[in-house]
């Protein structure tokens, strides 16, 4: 399968207001297929709201959002996920009362056993899909160093492990693009580097696109192919890490905030 040309994600003039306050005020940007793109900006720039709009957890008041050429603005989250865009959350949301393995299996796509009619009419297909899903879950858990934890309750994992599980779970859906909201937050640096290595490897192996929000400028500058900078609900700059660092508009947006652009 050859990847069609054009950006995987195209956002044009997205607007979202809460009680009259514009959280996203006409943002436009593209995310290139197979890229690792960072979304940065000072606190309150609208990054998380933008993630909500992209993943269907908020309906934009205006503007279009295209995923592989298809308009997804205002579509239900589950439909967007089934089109191949999967997100993680800023505060990790593992399903604490379920086992790590069940967290992974739940994410498997095309499981006929999740539908009552198919379950009753062809239980064999459900079992086959389950076996296949279990195999790929074992592989992903091994990649993320969670193989030994497969039988534990997800609620019993450490904070860093939950982060890993959430990312592994997102990948379990076989996505074409993954949105990671602060994947490094609350994770120790060694583990953080591992996560980033996995991301780079998966991009190479599967061509998966990654869009992530991150505050650590070192990570952004060394790991992203492309950077999108938001401030006050707008995209004020896009470009390569080197280009962004030199952009005066970006430096100005960051003045007076704790996240100064690293020299």
């Amino acid at each position: 399968m050859t990847a069609p040309a054009g950006p995987i994600l195209e956002v044009r003039g997205a607007v979202k207001a809460f009680d009259g306050l514009l959280a996203v005020a006409g943002a436009s940007f593209d995310v290139e297929r197979g890229s690792i793109t960072a979304l940065i900006g000072p606190n309150g720039a609208g990054k998380t709201t933008m993630f909500d709009l992209l993943s269907g957890f908020g309906r934009p008041d205006a503007g279009t959002i295209r995923l592989a050429g298809r308009d997804i603005a205002g579509m239900a989250p589950y439909r967007i996920a089934n089109l191949g865009l999967v997100r993680t959350f800023q505060l990790t949301r593992v399903l604490a009362g379920m086992s790590v393995m069940d967290n992974m299996l739940l994410a498997a796509r095309n499981q006929p056993g999740e539908h009552l009619a198919a379950l009753i009419l062809s239980p064999g297909r459900s079992r086959a899909a389950e076996a296949a899903a279990r195999e790929s879950a074992i592989g992903l858990l091994a990649t993320f160093g969670l193989a030994a934890k497969a039988g534990d309750y997800a609620g019993a994992l450490s904070g860093g492990q939950r982060k890993l599980l959430e990312i592994a779970r997102a990948l379990m859906t076989g996505p074409s693009i993954v949105l990671l909201d602060e994947p490094m937050a609350g994770v120790n640096p060694t583990l953080g580097r591992d996560i980033l290595d996995h991301i780079a490897a998966l991009r190479s192996a599967r061509g998966t696109t990654f869009l992530f929000v991150e505050h650590d400028m070192d990570v952004v500058m060394t790991r992203a192919d492309k950077v999108i900078v938001m401030a006050q609900g707008r995209v004020i700059a896009t470009g390569t890490p080197a280009g962004i660092r030199a952009d005066p508009a970006v430096v100005e947006a960051y003045l007076g905030t704790p996240h100064a652009v690293a020299p």
């Binding site: 993943s55 269907g56 957890f57 239900a76 989250p77 589950y78 996920a81 089934n82 999967v86 997100r87 959350f89 949301r93 593992v94 399903l95 604490a96 009362g97 379920m98 069940d102 299996l105 739940l106 994410a107 796509r109 499981q111 056993g113 999740e114 539908h115 009552l116 379950l119 459900s126 899909a129 389950e130 779970r169 997102a170 859906t173």
Partner: peptide, 21 residues
């Protein structure tokens, strides 16, 4: 069954489950 697993996922966190499709 996988159907029952989706129910439990929704009980645990319906947004996270919706985000998984």
């Amino acid at each position: 069954t996988p159907w029952g697993r989706v129910l439990r996922g929704i009980r645990e966190d319906e947004d996270a489950t919706a985000a998984l499709g």
